[in-house]
């Protein structure tokens, strides 16, 4: 069984993700700063707070870990803000460099009508963009729970596995490249189908 860790880098709903992985996969641990990371086989990066704040913590406490993961092509799964951090740059609270594992920028969703509200909170359908990962086809047109104001604008659109839309903004909601997965929605809060998706990502 693969050793799954969740990056515990601050004040997240870490426990939710912990419960969700534990329920299906069984084995999961939190990874705290200064902890030995040599046995990490898959790392989930959850997220809460702002892009800037999160990057400051990652750069301060987890720089060696992230270099180790990337140079050994260890699987990283970013969720919501954790997914944003994978990108080149964010503009939440001023421009800020991200981890640069996926090419692209994080931008604020645009309101089109005066009655539009942000954040985008609720259950939205996801649409398959790239058929190359056949294992994920079964999630096409299913609903997952979203809660966000920012979205990822990819440089290479073929890295997008699923897209979703809100107030006429269409955006990528799942990215994949080599050892990197990023999800805009919360599979850990999306009932059984979300748990299944987490498990498929772990096994992929």
């Amino acid at each position: 069984m693969k050793k799954v860790h969740i990056l515990n880098y601050g004040l997240g709903n870490v426990f939710s993700l912990y419960n969700a992985i534990k329920y299906k996969h069984g084995n999961v641990n939190l990874l705290n700063k200064k902890q030995n990371f040599n046995d990490v086989e898959i790392l989930f990066i959850p997220g809460v707070g702002s892009f800037n704040q999160a990057m400051n913590i990652l750069n301060r406490d987890f720089k060696k870990l992230l270099i180790h993961l990337n140079s050994n092509k260890i699987k990283i799964v970013g969720i919501c803000l954790g997914h944003h951090l994978l990108f080149t740059e964010g503009d939440e609270g001023g421009a800020c460099s991200g981890l640069g594992l996926i090419n692209g920028k994080i931008k604020l969703l645009k309101k089109r009508n005066s009655s539009d509200v942000l954040p985008n909170i609720g259950w939205r359908e996801i649409k398959l963009k790239s058929p190359k990962l056949s294992i994920f086809k079964k999630y096409d047109k299913h609903k997952f729970y979203f809660c966000h104001s920012y979205f990822s604008k990819l440089k290479y659109s073929n890295q997008s596995v699923f897209s979703s839309s809100y107030c006429h903004n269409e955006f990528s909601c799942m990215v994949y490249d080599e050892n990197i997965f990023g999800l805009q929605f919360h599979p850990e809060k999306s009932r059984e189908i979300g748990l299944e998706l987490i498990n498929d990502i772990i096994r992929y």
Binding site: L11, N13, S16
Partner: peptide
């Protein structure tokens, strides 16, 4: 209190 709530499983 908020931190405790989030660490207890609240979103």
């Amino acid at each position: 209190d908020i931190e405790r709530a989030l660490l207890s499983g609240a979103d």
